[in-house]
Design a protein around this nucleic acid. Structure first.
Lengths: 104, 104
DNA sequence: TACATATGAAACCATAAGGTACCATGTCAA
DNA sequence: TTGACATGGTACCTTATGGTTTCATATGTA
């Protein structure tokens, strides 16, 4: 799996905001654009980068393009972060005890 | 907490490689440079970006600068990713069962 | 069909980013 | 003190990136 496109996609604040918006509902390019102070063309470029990073999926519906969040696309990031888990004993044990408490 | 410097720091593959190297041991700028095909000045810039992102700490030791991994700096990324946890039921339950198996 | 709507795409701009070259400064060692 | 060594810092170059404008194309609708 190529991680670069995903890290690259997350590096821009506008794109991260778009992802947060798409949590609530799928949106057309025009709808996404309504939330920003920039042209539709600029937003389209951001959506392309997000798509390249596997963070969203796009499907055509008539003349519209429905953009949907693809949370699975964040796996490369999560996986890469696990490379540093050895330094996170504290956090991991906290999570573990939290889950254990939950399963009682 | 400002997340942008951290996401920005992780967007470059060279910088991610530097972080992986620093897991094993602290390194001076010259030592980090030995691992790449670029000048010390370029590596220094990367280290500055990593420092700005809170991902490494630098301390002076004589004429050297010791660069150390600061895994806590990745918290902003981990925290941001949790915004999408609602879409991760499958992965979370897998982790949960994994931990449950571990605690048997 | 005729016109408005939703995108796609390319040309163009200014700025940010990744690198190099070069010179200054601080520190270790004889 | 005198070099040698490790960095700091700046000027400069090239390419990538974020945006806008403008025009073409496809689809919905009166």
């Amino acid at each position: 799996m190529e991680t670069q496109p995903t890290f690259r996609a997350l590096a821009d604040p506008t794109r991260r905001d778009i992802l947060l918006m798409l949590r609530d509902k799928e949106m057309t390019i025009a709808e996404v654009t309504d939330n920003f102070d920039m042209t539709r063309a600029a937003v389209k470029k951001h959506l392309t980068v997000l798509s390249d990073g596997g963070l969203i999926t796009v499907r055509a519906q008539g003349r519209e393009r429905i953009n949907s969040l693809n949370p699975a696309g964040m796996a490369p990031i999560r996986d890469w972060l696990t490379f540093f888990d050895a330094f996170w004993d504290t956090r991991l044990s906290a999570l573990k005890s939290e889950i254990e408490k939950d399963t009682q």
